[in-house]
Design a protein around this nucleic acid. Structure first.
Lengths: 136, 136
DNA sequence: CCTTGACTTAGAGTACACTCCAACCCCTAG
DNA sequence: CTAGGGGTTGGAGTGTACTCTAAGTCAAGG
């Protein structure tokens, strides 16, 4: 598979795929006779995993650490599990935080819905005098 | 309240507070005779709201838009509600995505827990040959 | 009086994760 | 054989949100 097809299948741009390879997040791709990258379909599984970790806010540094552990072999299984568990805990905490924020948002939206019907509600919010004009 | 106390109460650094004021996310603070910022406690409510929006991934640009609407007055209530509703929908979608990722993480972790007991499991993952050495 | 520590400013620097550019090469269809 | 559409590279540029620096001012305790 050439890089163009992998962009379609993975959703990552060719720029990003080359960038990931350069920093070591993707293995060095095989090359065709003409020097073009030639990917194995198995890479999609790894990219999907990276995508999920990215979605959940894992920094590239940590994905690199995971990739390095994986490369080292079976001896690192415990370390990998720990890494993922730590990350999972962070994600869970973040989800909880987001849900708390959602509750506040819902309340605020409900308040606006009421205020819009009543036409004018003066004490719903603190008056704040903002600077007039653009940021410097 | 001086900026030092507000840093403690808000959790934002003095740098950040001044930065937020400069870009218009916080109202221009009153000044003491010596020119130091003198905050009203009411600002904490606004900062808390900003924090929540930040936590849920709202970009500063959009918070500025919200602040501008708020400043304009009651006529913008519908627009503000819409802004928050749009944001809420995004956050909900993101939470759903995170939960899907969490499910995958759980599965993967469970797999590792098994593999660690069995000592050696060879076909659990695709072998990927990573580049040896550092990124350029 | 002097030191300490909190405050002030404009502007520069940082971290992260891309994203793009210039200038090139290579294959295939018309 | 040439035009188009892929691919290649190193390195520079972008956007977001801070974060820090330099060079001061100011107020209060010992």
């Amino acid at each position: 598979m050439k890089i163009g097809e992998l962009t379609k299948r993975s959703g990552l741009s060719a720029h990003t795929l080359r960038y990931y390879e350069r920093i070591g997040l993707l293995p060095v791709a095989d090359r065709s006779a003409s020097g073009h990258r030639d990917y194995d379909a198995a890479i999609l599984v790894w990219i999907e995993f990276l995508d999920r970790m990215k979605t959940t806010g894992m920094p590239i540094r940590e994905m690199l650490r995971y990739a390095a552990l994986r490369e080292t072999g079976d001896a690192t299984i415990d370390a990998r599990r720990e890494l993922l568990e730590t990350h999972r805990d962070k994600v869970r905490a973040h989800v909880a935080e987001l849900q708390a924020c959602l509750a506040v948002l819902d309340t605020k939206i409900a308040g606006y819905a009421g205020a819009s019907q009543v036409e004018t509600t003066h004490d719903a919010e603190h008056p704040l005098r903002f600077r007039i004009g653009k940021a410097r």
